[in-house]
């Protein structure tokens, strides 16, 4: 970390390697789109590189860089646009083989796509704590530190968001 802060590119590359999957996971659920997610993560790392000399290490690097990522999602507002998320795997209903169990697989794919669409319906204030806790595995305390709110507030917001997501999924059935 000290080496990266002093401008060592190899040390920074090691940080990118360590954190890129987790950041991409958060970005993908926040934006609903692999291309936007990649852009946001890339911009986040560049911003981290620029501001690393001022990073005081009070929070962990993961917390700090995830906060930058969430702020970029807020700033971009791209996530609020009505977009249809791209199917991330080759399991979309359209391309299903006609074989036993294909219908079940298609329904599973549709259900997952419904979850991705429902996530994008949530306002960012709800989506961020939901993505961080349910989809990225952060604790409520970590989520609070990332979002600059208390652990209790993070817990309340995540719970409200889960309830809102469940209601959307139920309404769409």
């Amino acid at each position: 970390m000290d080496l990266a802060r002093r401008g060592d590119e190899d040390a920074f590359a090691a940080l990118v390697r360590t954190h890129q999957d987790q950041l991409y996971r958060v970005a993908l659920r926040m934006t609903g789109n692999p291309s936007d997610a990649q852009d946001v993560v890339q911009e986040t790392f560049l911003q981290a590189w620029q501001h690393l000399p001022g990073f005081r290490g009070e929070s962990g690097f993961s917390t700090w860089v995830t906060r930058i990522l969430i702020n970029r999602c807020h700033n971009a507002r791209r996530a609020q646009d009505p977009v249809v998320p791209l199917s991330e795997q080759d399991e979309s209903a359209a391309g299903m083989p006609r074989s036993p169990g294909a219908e079940t697989l298609a329904m599973t794919a549709q259900s997952r796509d419904a979850v991705r669409r429902a996530l994008l319906e949530l306002p960012l204030e709800q989506r961020a704590p939901l993505v961080l806790t349910t989809f990225a595995g952060y604790t409520h305390a970590e989520t609070g530190r990332i979002l600059g709110i208390s652990e209790g507030t993070a817990k309340v917001r995540a719970h409200r968001a889960r309830r809102a997501l469940a209601t959307l999924l139920e309404d769409w059935r």
């Binding site: 950041l23 991409y24 989809f135």
Partner: peptide
């Protein structure tokens, strides 16, 4: 399905680094 999506193995694209 929410748990299914949460459990998906999401990795950064190969060229990101």
């Amino acid at each position: 399905p929410v748990l299914d999506v949460a459990a998906e193995d999401v990795r950064a694209p190969a060229g990101l680094l």
